[in-house]
Amino acid sequence: MSEYIYPILFGVVAGTISRILLLRTDYRQYPTYLHGKIIHLSLGFIAASLGALAVPALLEKEFTAVTLLTVAATQFRDVRNMERNTLTEMDSFELVTRGKTYIEGIAISFESRNYLVMFTGFLTSLSYILWNVFIAIIVAIVCFVLGHILMSGSVLEDIVKIDQADISFDGAGLYVDNIYIMNIGLAERKKEIMKYGMGFIVTPKNMNAISTIGNLGQRQAIIHDVSVALGVFRDSGTPALTPLIKRDLDDGRLGVFILPQIRDVAVAKKVIGSVPVLENAVRMPSETNAYKKGAHKK
């Protein structure tokens, strides 16, 4: 038996465990099915093996073995494609769609998790070979914690303030606070909306947040998450009953109009607050050089 067998096994196991820890089925309900989970666990296992195998290959001066990692990169990019395609296909059958930005965010995180697994496998088997199993265990734990920190992005609550607001009609125009949402013609629909609708005002805390929550994908993510968590009063034949978010052009506040089945203000606020800030929606105007050099002084 090769001297590397235990380090490799250890790396593979540590990497696979880190994939299991990162694979949680939460309110996003994805991946829900056993089959979906098995796909991701198997890919995690492959990633861990690749990472763990790289160390002995390098130590044996088999440098060409590193090219195997490029194969891995291609493989995991395909994971992203697979996730994107599946979710996009399913999105058209959702009562309230996820939106492309949200899907892309999910797909990216599936890809990057595999890389984290690969690094975990690499680092643990490396430390096993260089030192001993105990240090490898410590490294594995550090990797789990780091992976967890890296994979949990910020939530909306960090960048905005959420308040409940009244919904009202001015003629046919539906308003949340003073923000115009849409035109509803039928008296019957108006009654339903007044009965089931709820309004919230999302106020950005700073300039960066204004641009971030202005993103249409980010707004769709808010509506989707709220509809998943609280249910939605809507069906395929009633396009007038659509949760919508519109923006106040003056100050960048958002008027959130939702039609939840569970009408609980506190829960709704909490759900909106815990919507992830999508990586693709984040804008940092305050980081531009013009601002940094002090051109923007009040």
């Binding site: 003629g171 046919a172 849409m182 035109n183 509803i184 013609g185 039928l186 008296a187 019957e188 629909r189 395929s236 034949g237 009633t238 396009p239 007038a240």
Partner: peptide, 18 residues
């Protein structure tokens, strides 16, 4: 008018705007 608009809304899968 309301009745026809409501029916058309349901049939056409569109929104009745006033």
């Amino acid at each position: 008018l309301e009745l026809i608009a409501a029916n058309l809304e349901a049939i056409m899968d569109g929104i009745a705007h006033a």
